[in-house]
Amino acid sequence: NQESVVAAVLIPINTALTVGMMTTRVVSPTGIPAEDIPRLISMQVNQVVPMGTTLMPDMVKGYAP
């Protein structure tokens, strides 16, 4: 099972992602793959992401799977 990126904290809208904001977990449905965390650093979320929420591609500005 592939791990997906999950919010480790509440991430406010338009916040640039940092390593500490993200964790990984096997979830269903799957979100952004864990191995993409290095690509996500400094990208901004386009909505509020509650802690424990799986990051989906459409939540991150400029992210393309």
Rank of each mutant, 00 (worst) to 15 (best):
Q2V: 09
Q2D: 10
E3H: 12
E3V: 12
E3S: 11
S4V: 03
V5A: 06
V5D: 01
A7P: 00
A7S: 11
A8Y: 06
A8H: 07
A8S: 12
V9M: 13
V9K: 15
V9Y: 09
L10K: 08
I11A: 00
I11Q: 00
P12M: 13
P12Q: 08
P12Y: 06
I13Y: 06
I13S: 08
I13D: 12
T15G: 11
T15W: 06
T15C: 03
A16Q: 12
L17T: 00
L17P: 02
L17K: 00
L17N: 00
L17A: 00
T18L: 11
G20I: 09
G20Q: 15
G20W: 05
M21C: 03
M21S: 05
M21P: 01
M22W: 03
T23F: 15
R25E: 08
V27Y: 02
V27C: 03
S28Y: 12
P29T: 07
P29W: 04
T30P: 14
T30F: 07
G31F: 02
G31E: 02
G31A: 05
P33A: 06
P33N: 14
A34Q: 07
E35D: 10
E35W: 09
E35R: 14
D36M: 15
I37P: 00
I37F: 11
P38L: 11
R39E: 06
R39V: 09
R39H: 12
L40H: 01
L40A: 01
L40M: 15
I41E: 09
I41Q: 12
S42H: 07
S42A: 08
S42F: 14
M43I: 05
M43C: 04
Q44K: 10
Q44Y: 11
Q44I: 08
V45T: 09
V45I: 06
N46D: 07
V48N: 12
V48R: 06
V49K: 01
V49Y: 01
P50I: 06
M51N: 09
G52C: 03
G52W: 08
T53F: 05
T53H: 09
L55T: 01
L55S: 01
M56E: 08
P57Q: 08
P57A: 14
D58N: 13
M59G: 02
M59I: 03
V60E: 01
K61A: 13
K61H: 07
K61W: 08
K61V: 10
Y63P: 04
Y63C: 03
A64W: 12
P65A: 13
P65Q: 13
